[in-house]
Computed example of a mutant assay.
Amino acid sequence: MAAPADTVQTAFDKAASQRALVLPTIPEELRALEADELLESAGDALEAIDARDLIIADANFSELEAAHARFANCFLSCCDFSGALFTDTVFEGCDFANAYFDGASFTRCTFKNCKLTGASFMEANFEQVSLADCILAYGAFNQCRWWGVEAVRCDFSGADMAEMELHYVMLDDNRFIGTSFFRTRLLGIDFTTCQLEGVALSDTMSEIYGTKLNVYQAAALAQRLGVIVAE
């Protein structure tokens, strides 16, 4: 038996309550970080650094720690940041295509105009993170935890967002075309301003319980349930 509409609305309202996004704390004075120092930083904590225009590929930065930092216009494609810890860090205009962030942690971080195509964030933790104008298509977010995340004008097309844990997530004008939400509970998520097409769900489509959709999105999903939608 379907849940009463008022029960679903109550569940959505409770889950959709927002928390104020806490932005990174960046010192006025930052120390310039060169590529050689970053490559030799294994096991060291980077504090109050400004990394600009770095070009590095296929490097191992696993378990890197950075705090109160800025990365701007850096090309770090295919690098391994598995288990890295980023706190109060700004990423702007960076290319992390096909990079690995598996098990990494981001706390009070912002990504703006970054390319993260095919990047892997499996089992990563996002807490108080803002994503704006970023390309995350074909990324892997399996079992990733998002707590207090805002995504605006981002492309998640073809991304694998299965078995994620989502809390206090705000979405606006994002693309979710062919995205997999298999076994990801979307309760309290508002997709009404987003492009949502051909998403992958379980057979029961239980993932979308308590999700807010516009009429066109709801009609497309209803057709997958065998419902005939009158025009």
Results as ranks from 00 to 15, higher is better:
2 A>G: 10
4 P>D: 05
10 T>L: 13
11 A>S: 13
17 S>F: 12
17 S>W: 02
18 Q>I: 15
19 R>T: 13
21 L>P: 07
24 P>H: 11
25 T>L: 09
26 I>A: 07
27 P>I: 12
31 R>G: 03
32 A>W: 01
36 D>W: 04
37 E>F: 11
38 L>P: 08
38 L>N: 03
39 L>V: 06
42 A>F: 06
45 A>E: 09
46 L>A: 01
50 D>W: 00
51 A>V: 04
52 R>E: 08
54 L>E: 03
55 I>G: 02
57 A>S: 08
59 A>V: 06
60 N>V: 10
62 S>T: 09
63 E>M: 10
64 L>H: 01
65 E>H: 15
75 F>E: 06
80 D>F: 10
81 F>G: 01
82 S>D: 12
84 A>Y: 10
86 F>E: 03
88 D>S: 14
89 T>G: 02
90 V>W: 01
95 D>I: 00
95 D>Q: 10
98 N>Y: 13
101 F>S: 06
102 D>E: 08
103 G>I: 02
104 A>E: 07
104 A>S: 15
105 S>D: 10
107 T>F: 05
110 T>K: 05
112 K>M: 14
113 N>P: 01
117 T>L: 09
117 T>R: 06
123 E>W: 03
125 N>R: 08
126 F>K: 03
127 E>D: 13
137 A>W: 00
137 A>Q: 12
138 Y>E: 13
138 Y>F: 08
138 Y>H: 08
139 G>M: 04
143 Q>V: 09
144 C>K: 02
150 E>K: 11
155 D>M: 11
155 D>F: 01
157 S>D: 12
158 G>I: 13
162 A>Q: 09
164 M>E: 05
168 Y>M: 12
168 Y>N: 14
169 V>N: 04
171 L>A: 12
175 R>M: 07
177 I>S: 05
177 I>M: 11
180 S>V: 09
181 F>P: 02
182 F>V: 14
184 T>W: 02
186 L>G: 03
187 L>E: 13
187 L>D: 08
190 D>S: 08
191 F>R: 04
196 L>R: 01
201 L>F: 10
201 L>H: 04
204 T>A: 02
204 T>F: 02
207 E>I: 04
213 L>W: 15
214 N>I: 12
219 A>W: 06
221 L>P: 11
222 A>V: 03
224 R>T: 10
224 R>W: 06
226 G>W: 03
226 G>F: 02
230 A>I: 14
